[in-house]
Computed example of a mutant assay.
Amino acid sequence: MTILLALDDTDSLESRGTGRLARAVADAIAKHYPIWGVTRHQLYVHPSIPYTSHNSCAVIHIDADGGEPLNTALSIAEKTMLDDFVEGSDPGLAGATLDQVAPAVIAFGRDAQQMVLTQERARTLAANLGIWLKGLGGTQDGVIGAMAGLGLAATRNDGRFLQKGTIRSLTGPTPAELLLGAGVDEIMTLDGRRVTEGTIILKEGKAAKACPINGRVVLFVDEQDGKLVAVKRN
Score class of each variant (00 low, 15 high):
residue 212 P to T: 13
residue 154 A to L: 02
residue 109 G to Q: 10
residue 225 D to Q: 15
residue 195 V to K: 09
residue 173 P to G: 06
residue 130 G to T: 07
residue 48 S to T: 11
residue 123 R to N: 13
residue 128 N to P: 03
residue 153 A to H: 00
residue 217 V to Q: 02
residue 45 V to S: 03
residue 220 F to G: 12
residue 205 G to V: 04
residue 192 G to F: 13
residue 136 L to I: 14
residue 228 L to I: 10
residue 37 G to M: 06
residue 199 T to R: 03
residue 144 I to W: 12
residue 213 I to V: 15
residue 199 T to P: 02
residue 211 C to L: 13
residue 80 T to Q: 09
residue 194 R to L: 10
residue 179 L to D: 03
residue 38 V to N: 06
residue 192 G to T: 14
residue 137 G to W: 07
residue 28 A to H: 11
residue 208 A to P: 10
residue 172 G to M: 02
residue 129 L to H: 08
residue 227 K to A: 15
residue 127 A to L: 06
residue 122 A to I: 08
residue 154 A to H: 00
residue 29 I to Y: 00
residue 208 A to D: 02
residue 214 N to D: 12
residue 196 T to S: 13
residue 192 G to P: 11
residue 15 S to Q: 08
residue 38 V to P: 03
residue 108 F to V: 06
residue 3 I to P: 07
residue 107 A to Q: 12
residue 188 M to V: 15
residue 166 T to C: 01
residue 3 I to M: 09
residue 91 P to I: 04
residue 140 Q to W: 12
residue 184 V to W: 04
residue 19 G to I: 00
residue 79 K to S: 11
residue 18 T to E: 04
residue 25 V to F: 01
residue 60 I to D: 01
residue 171 T to M: 03
residue 77 A to I: 02
residue 230 A to D: 06
residue 203 K to L: 03
residue 57 C to G: 10
residue 18 T to P: 04
residue 167 I to M: 09
residue 211 C to D: 14
residue 113 Q to I: 00
residue 204 E to T: 02
residue 207 A to L: 00
residue 38 V to Q: 05
residue 72 T to Q: 10
residue 19 G to W: 07
residue 72 T to A: 13
residue 227 K to G: 07
residue 169 S to Q: 05
residue 220 F to Q: 14
residue 97 T to G: 08
residue 33 Y to L: 09
residue 188 M to H: 12
residue 126 A to L: 03
residue 59 V to Q: 03
residue 99 D to Q: 04
residue 157 N to W: 01
residue 132 W to F: 14
residue 103 P to I: 12
residue 166 T to Q: 11
residue 101 V to K: 00
residue 50 P to Y: 12
residue 111 D to Q: 10
residue 31 K to N: 11
residue 28 A to D: 13
residue 56 S to Y: 07
residue 37 G to V: 06
residue 217 V to W: 01
residue 16 R to T: 11
residue 17 G to V: 01
residue 41 H to M: 04
residue 49 I to K: 08
residue 193 R to F: 15
residue 177 E to Q: 12
residue 202 L to W: 07
residue 49 I to S: 04
residue 151 G to W: 02
residue 204 E to L: 02
residue 199 T to F: 01
residue 145 G to I: 11
residue 102 A to F: 05
residue 167 I to Y: 01
residue 23 R to F: 00
residue 24 A to R: 10
residue 159 G to P: 07
residue 142 G to P: 08
residue 60 I to M: 05
residue 30 A to C: 01
residue 222 D to L: 13
residue 122 A to E: 09
residue 211 C to S: 15
residue 99 D to T: 05
